[in-house]
Design a protein around this nucleic acid. Structure first.
Lengths: 372, 372
DNA sequence: CTGAAAGCGCTTACAG
DNA sequence: CTGAAAGCGCTTACAG
């Protein structure tokens, strides 16, 4: 087995004729910073294919791109020549003329620490990658938290290194969204952008509807004093899920039944629960705006000697993997993030094709477990 | 605000002279599949900069690439011309000649479902992305589970769309590793590859040392009957962490003190714990090979009426976010995944520069919480 | 339906 | 230290 750390440049490349059908192994090009020059792989080009198929270079390009007006005979000749030579198109050359890269940026514009622990984020990342793959495009992951990173990402994207961008977890006032839309880069946001820039298309799970669904469920179980722990109210998940709660219980639900967590952590959930227990010791159910917050609530409830769900029913949101590790397991709202990712890509491609695109809101699903 | 979903092609582009210094807004190129033609952004090129700076195109290129032998005067002229024109280099054009893409594939060759829920994975992804950014390179996320995906990824990478690859969670017998190394693509694996292909460089956290550390810790707390729940033994995390346990307790530890989980889930941890409680009801500590497994163990321990840590001390592994949500919070082993990612990129770049590279094993750290 | 030719924007020996 | 020129591998009007 050859050692990949060793140069391939010592081979007899000078006296061996180059056979396109059996290209040498690929070796990275030395950076101009001064690495030694090495032998380069030189795979078969479109010209090799053309020659082999007995057609012109243009014709090969036409079958490559599925252009009309190619005779069946030519097409076939080209196709077999391609497989015989092991041809693979050079994306750089193509991009240089088409100005299409087949790459899409997945931009995370958030202090990354918390986000990357969020299974929702991973699920979304996965589904976007997958959907992109089915369209022969690929995902470039970019971190845009902090001024320096933000500028680099913005430069990268507006320079045309990618065809468009998928935006995740932008917060209110985030300049990325605005500057991208200003630069007329095709963009799709995950979740309705909090800034009122209606030129940005978005795909979102139905936070409000999901919350509604959960509170209805708690009511259907016979609960009559249903409190809620909201997320931070300056986020869509915070405000929308509270709105869903209010949709069911009416706008005049007493304030003492509502506690807002300061962030999305376990600890914040615990604090909020402790607060509720003081203001509303008689509550018999609580809708918590995320599963992680709910784990904090469960701890406090247990410490207070209350049984879940006997004394207090607890409903979460997210259907995070953590929901099956709690005791009792958590009834929660599942967001179909596979669908969200799929649609984000779909909408982006609609934009790329220059067609008008719509916003999409995807229904959620209640997952009944043992906490209600 | 212009509507990005609308074509820009209706503007008076025909009678307005193109001014490179004030490029039109970028608009994606129509795909050859037949979208309508639209006006294209045409940013300033190297020629525009050269003209403005009063030098040749070659000189601009030289300052761009930090080549030697450029007079200070020329350099300065070029630099200011660049910022005046808002020049940004066209990566496709550059790649076409250098055969360097500045892109690196991050290849996940695993049934993705479970992996993407793993916070370790996210942390690694983040640190690699970050480290790459500091080197002006970007990360292309690729999913390689399943024959079809695997082939697509392999084709993509060997076609030179990226300069090299970062490999994650390959399992024994995974053909990706082998085929990549065979194609002489520079590759760095996360974790020692289980197949004996010594040509592959790897960066790993010290699983064995970490396990050793935890078991020592349990002993130091006065525990004398320390059992273990291992992960699946055909994974590095499974076998190496068991080896670390044995390092401390000797190779002759009775089999009844060891239970292997069938996978890394909460449920598998619960099953294994129940088993241990039957075979070794007198155990006073258990080292569990992952935090998620440990949550399962904690549930069973509580159900059995044992107090943690009073009756049984529990040590986990990973320092996953879940470790602070359990009750009691989990003493565990932290893997510095930021460092792992950093070094993976560093090693890959060493390879790309054609230099010999070494393997790297990174020490772990014990995080003491309330379960021990 | 198909060739020949121009051109995408850069880098890099080659000569000064 | 620097220009002029060739060339990277493709796509795409333009003429047939």
């Amino acid at each position: 087995m050859p050692d990949p750390t060793r140069s391939a440049g010592t081979g007899p490349s000078g006296d061996t004729p180059v056979v396109p059908a059996a290209p040498a192994a690929p070796v990275p090009h030395p950076k101009s910073r001064g690495a030694a020059r090495r032998a380069m792989r030189r795979g078969p080009t479109i010209d090799d294919v053309a020659q082999r198929a007995g057609v012109s270079r243009g014709t090969v390009s036409r079958v490559l791109n599925g252009a009309p007006y190619v005779s069946a005979a030519s097409r076939e000749a080209v196709l077999s020549a391609m497989s015989e030579t092991g041809y693979v198109t050079n994306q750089s050359a193509r991009s240089l003329v088409t100005r299409r890269t087949n790459a899409v940026a997945f931009i995370v514009s958030e202090p990354q620490d918390r986000l990357f622990e969020d299974p929702n984020f991973s699920a979304l990342l996965r589904s976007c990658t997958q959907e992109l793959a089915t369209r022969d495009a690929h995902l470039v992951l970019m971190l845009a938290a902090g001024d320096e990173n933000r500028d680099r990402v913005l430069r990268f994207v507006t320079a045309g290194h990618v065809d468009g961008a998928l935006l995740v977890s932008t917060h209110q006032g985030d300049p990325v969204t605005h500057r991208l839309s200003q630069a007329r880069v095709p963009v799709v946001s995950c979740g309705r952008p909090l800034d009122v820039d209606r030129s940005i298309r978005y795909v979102a799970a139905d936070d409000r509807g999901g919350a509604h669904q959960m509170v209805e469920h708690l009511r259907a179980q016979g609960r009559t004093r249903i409190a809620t722990i909201t997320g931070p109210l300056d986020t869509p998940g915070g405000s929308e899920r509270l709105a869903g709660y209010r949709d069911v219980l009416g706008p005049h639900i007493p304030e003492r039944m509502i506690a807002s967590a300061t962030d999305w952590s376990h600890a914040a959930g615990a604090v909020a629960m402790a607060h509720l227990l003081e203001t509303s010791p008689d509550l018999d159910a609580v809708f918590v705006a995320s599963d992680l917050l709910a784990t904090g609530a469960l701890s406090v409830l247990r410490q207070s000697g209350r049984d879940v769900p006997e004394d207090v029913a607890v409903g979460g949101f997210d259907d995070s993997p953590i929901a099956v590790t709690t005791d009792p397991t958590l009834t929660t709202i599942r967001q179909p993030l596979d669908l969200v990712g799929q649609h984000m890509v779909r909408v982006l491609f609609t934009l790329l094709d220059g067609k008008p695109a719509v916003n999409i809101v995807i229904p959620t699903e209640l997952v009944h477990r043992n906490s209600t």
